[in-house]
Design a protein around this nucleic acid. Structure first.
Lengths: 145, 145
DNA sequence: TTCGATGCAAAGCCTTTGCATCCTG
DNA sequence: CAGGATGCAAAGGCTTTGCATCGAA
């Protein structure tokens, strides 16, 4: 919606790559814009279907794949059951409740405090370092019930 | 095999819980003992099948589930494609090559340098903090080829 | 003898793919 | 109007489940 929003930016990039701007893609981009819920493909499909009832799951997967290859979408590997998607591609961390599987962003910058041990640094060209916090959120915590 | 090894310890715990010590479980435990390869269920099945040709995949999954509930096996959620298992249940971190999907352990203790931001700490009872490094390993790195 | 464990097959999710049709550019 | 995108259905991985049989204790 905003002139500098996610959808607008990605649309420019699609145009630049001579990829097509379809109503389905636009609907998915609008759903993802500012979305911090880390939805699964199925969730994205369900939500976008409400505004766009004829969209197919395959199109959702195709679009997510395209966005990932454009570097405009990140797969979050923290939920062992399914892929979760994040339109925020800045380096950041995640916190998940192991009960309700809610994922929250952690935008703390740990700077250089997290370093690979020397031995490993020679064996792996590190592209990303992410911290995963997990535990029980307030609503899932026994004491709270 | 050793008197203080993984298999022996888990067998004692199975006994304590009145669970059965079957040849299949023993074979799986021996395969897992000291294993730092972070195998998938399929890999465990394939390897254990060589020593134990009649074992079934369902038994492997059942056993992994039992071990996980005993706290003697950890699911590593870093490979988006499948669950990877780790018999080392001490808190530690992982480094994965995004190309060949090899996972290595990182036993660095980051102590208190990794802290949840205040806001989140009130919303999540943190049970574990793990760092995921990812990138290309030497054999998968273009420069090396 | 008992009851948990096994093995087989089927089913259940999640994700990918093939292909005819559609529609953006 | 060309070629990429869509939608449908089928297929493909990974994982779970139902159930009859087996076997450890």
């Amino acid at each position: 919606m905003g002139t500098n929003g996610y959808a607008d930016r990605v649309i420019q990039r699609l145009r630049g790559k001579k990829l097509k701007i379809t109503p389905q893609r636009i609907a998915i981009l609008h759903y993802l814009e500012g979305n911090t819920a880390h939805p699964s493909a199925e969730q994205i499909y369900r939500e976008v279907s409400r505004a766009f009832p004829t969209i197919s799951l395959a199109t959702v997967y195709n679009t997510l794949d395209t966005l990932e290859r454009l570097g405009e979408l990140q797969v979050v590997a923290i939920d062992p059951a399914r892929k979760r998607y994040d339109p925020d591609t800045r380096p950041h961390h995640h916190a998940m409740c192991t009960e309700c599987r809610t994922i929250q962003d952690v935008h703390t910058d740990y700077g250089g405090t997290i370093a690979l041990p020397d031995g490993l640094r020679e064996r792996l060209q590190v592209a990303s370092v992410t911290v995963h916090f997990s535990g029980l959120c307030r609503s899932c915590s026994p004491v709270t019930i």
